[in-house]
Simulated assay, not measured.
Amino acid sequence: MSHPPLLCSGDTIYITAPARALPIDEVQHAIRSIEKFGFKAVVGSTIGTSFHQWSSADWARAADVQTALNNPEVKALFMARGGYGCVRIIDELDFSPLHKYPKWIVGFSDVTVFHAHLWSNFRIVSLHAPMIINFKENTEESIQSIFHQLLTGKGSLSGTVGLPGVAQGPLIGGNLSVLYSLLGSKSFPDLRGAILMLEDLDEYLYHIDRMLYALKRAGVFEGLAGLVVGSFTNMHDNQVPFGYSVSDILLHHFAHRGIPVAFEANIGHHTDQRAFIHGADAVLEVDSIGNWQLRWQLT
């Protein structure tokens, strides 16, 4: 495992939109927050532009991300928003500059493509965190969690609903739908010995079950050390109900594995979500009545 250096006051943060578009006026609040925390914000060429449902054509989005990867002054890339688009450019990017100019990749949702790809191919950690579009609406604690972890390299979450056990391993995961879409590619992470974090948005309940069955049948859950369940927001059902909640579905797939499972983690598509360091060494402890604590840090 390798990780970028922790940020220092005055470091440069580059804002780019590798997926959907974000108008320039919607970036200003985030820039003020970045500056308040003592950093310099640089806006990339994909901010304030649009091409169909994306910020720019594939080549232009890739070029903007590559510009930041190549720049030795840039210490972190803050992704503007998700949606869909990261997978269209991931194979066009040259990540080799990160060996010489390491930097943090920051975002979530569709940015799960970047987190998974960096871990799978280079064992580089990154930050699963709110994005530029979230700065205005998210809670102060949510935004603070981004900078706290970029400055300290550690974090924690806790809750009161879980299945007992103890697990230790790298904290891996993100958006379930995006991970599912990477199955069979060089970007899908090896989950053996890992603590898997999952969240999702705007899916049908049976889709959640189908994705988990596909992952299970592919064998990727074999050797999994633990599971942490974030928010599954705005789930849908059919006119004929599926019959099981998200929790029911997850218990069906993981309760028999004898691993600790933590529910209701403050991760995902909601305004108080917290950041976590993807790939960091983590410990998950769930007691006999379901109280759990998750801690992670860079080593």
Rank of each mutant, 00 (worst) to 15 (best):
Y244L: 12
S231H: 15
G219A: 10
V228M: 14
V228G: 15
D248W: 00
S231C: 11
T233S: 15
V246N: 05
M235S: 12
F232Q: 03
E222V: 04
V229K: 01
Q239I: 08
F232L: 12
L227G: 02
P241G: 09
L224N: 11
A214C: 06
L224M: 09
D237K: 03
V246Y: 02
A225E: 05
P241M: 02
T233V: 14
P241A: 11
M235L: 15
K216F: 01
L215F: 00
D248Q: 03
D237P: 04
V240W: 06
V220T: 14
V240L: 09
Y244E: 13
T233M: 13
G219L: 05
N238W: 11
K216G: 02
K216V: 00
P241L: 03
F221N: 05
L215S: 02
V240F: 07
S245R: 05
Y244V: 02
G219T: 01
V229A: 02
V228A: 15
V246Q: 07
L224E: 12
V240Q: 11
M235R: 11
V220C: 14
H236C: 05
A225F: 10
G226L: 13
N234H: 13
D237L: 03
S245F: 05
K216T: 12
G243E: 03
V229I: 15
V228L: 10
Q239E: 08
A214P: 01
D237C: 02
R217A: 04
G223L: 14
G243Y: 01
L224R: 13
V246S: 09
P241E: 03
S245M: 03
P241K: 04
D237R: 05
V229L: 07
L227V: 15
D237G: 07
N234D: 11
V228Q: 04
D237E: 10
R217C: 00
V228F: 12
F232K: 04
V229P: 03
L224A: 14
K216S: 11
S231N: 12
G219P: 06
A214I: 00
G219R: 06
A214Y: 01
Q239S: 03
G243K: 02
V229W: 00
R217N: 09
Q239C: 00
A214V: 04
A214N: 13
G230Y: 07
G226Y: 12
A214R: 12
N234T: 07
S245K: 04
N238T: 06
V246D: 07
H236S: 11
G230V: 10
A214M: 08
S245P: 05
Q239N: 00
M235W: 12
D248N: 14
